[in-house]
Design a binder for these strands. Structure first.
Length: 270
DNA sequence: AACGTCTGCAACCGCCGTTCA
DNA sequence: GTGAACGGCGGTTGCAGACGT
């Protein structure tokens, strides 16, 4: 007996999402959250499968998505973690704030895998020398263990043994099982700081309640204060962007659901 | 300009683990 | 204990734009 399909596929839209659909999804989630993905499309008036909505939100519409090319540091992190974890994209993504598993998977399959392959090829042809044109992309041999501390993988190879000794004294960049307790607001700021044209301020990022509890009280105050000042701005900007997109196609009819929206009604959801 | 090929990425598919009645 | 419902994950596909001929 096979599993029932996640939803009836009859009459549902497939393929690329339209700006109208995006706007509907964002609007609904901002107002009501996403406690039930299966029910969401019906409640939001979307002709989409719940899974499709979830994927669209997680991979594209979430306000805390980090846009732009991956930095060298991020690529190094992916390579190191992939060496250790294999294709555990969600685990790798959990160590790269603002990056999605899908995005990381794509980057790996389209760029990093090829780079590593060509790097290995170069290493074979230049087997007499230890030089490498791209040292950070060299394959790193790390023994696989059942229990692991990802933070050690993210430290410099040269400092890893030292790091092991001072494990408890050092604050890891990320840990598989306990990332929430060690990831501070300052870490987030640093990790987002050099992103060009980042449309979202760090203080407006959606923060899961559990994570919010773990943020230092002082930092929470700073975030809250800045949020009060900017409340709704990020969402409004995003709506405005979508509005512009919507207006590009003169043949589009204005969605009645969206027509009467008052953008000032929307606030960041905690 | 027209056509074919390549590349990157968004989205889909199907399976798995967890939860709950 | 069982199976349906659901969220999540990883592999794969398909499309659009870039590029080459």
């Amino acid at each position: 007996m096979g599993r029932a399909p996640c939803c009836s596929k009859v009459g549902l839209n497939k393929g690329a999402w339209t700006p109208q659909e995006d706007l509907r999804l964002i609007t609904y989630i901002q107002q009501y959250g996403h406690s039930n993905w299966r029910a969401l499309p019906k409640l939001a008036g979307l002709k989409r499968c719940g899974k499709s909505c979830r994927l669209r939100w997680i991979n594209y519409l979430r306000p805390d998505i980090k846009r732009g090319n991956f930095t060298q540091e991020e690529e190094e992190t992916i390579i190191k973690l992939h060496n250790k974890l294999g294709n555990k994209w969600s685990k790798i993504a959990s160590c790269l704030p603002g990056r999605t598993d899908n995005e990381i998977k794509n980057v790996w399959n389209t760029h990093l895998k090829k780079q590593l392959a060509s790097n290995e090829q170069n290493a074979k042809t230049k087997s007499t020398t230890t030089d490498s044109s791209n040292p950070q992309l060299e394959k790193i041999e790390i023994p696989v263990e059942n229990e692991m501390d990802i933070s050690s993988l993210l430290m410099d190879d040269s400092t890893s043994s030292q790091a092991e000794e001072t494990k408890n004294a050092e604050k890891p960049v990320c840990s598989d099982s306990d990332s929430i307790s060690t990831f501070t607001f300052s870490d987030a700021v640093n990790s987002f700081g050099d992103v060009e044209n980042d449309p979202f301020d760090i203080t407006n990022l959606f923060i899961e309640p559990e994570l919010w509890e773990e943020i230092e009280p002082k930092e929470r105050d700073i975030i809250s204060q800045e949020r009060e000042e900017n409340e709704g701005g990020e969402v409004r900007d995003w709506f405005k962007h979508l509005e512009r997109e919507l207006m590009k196609d003169a043949n589009d009819q204005i969605d009645p659901f969206l027509r009467d929206l008052n953008f000032d009604d929307f606030k960041i959801v905690f």
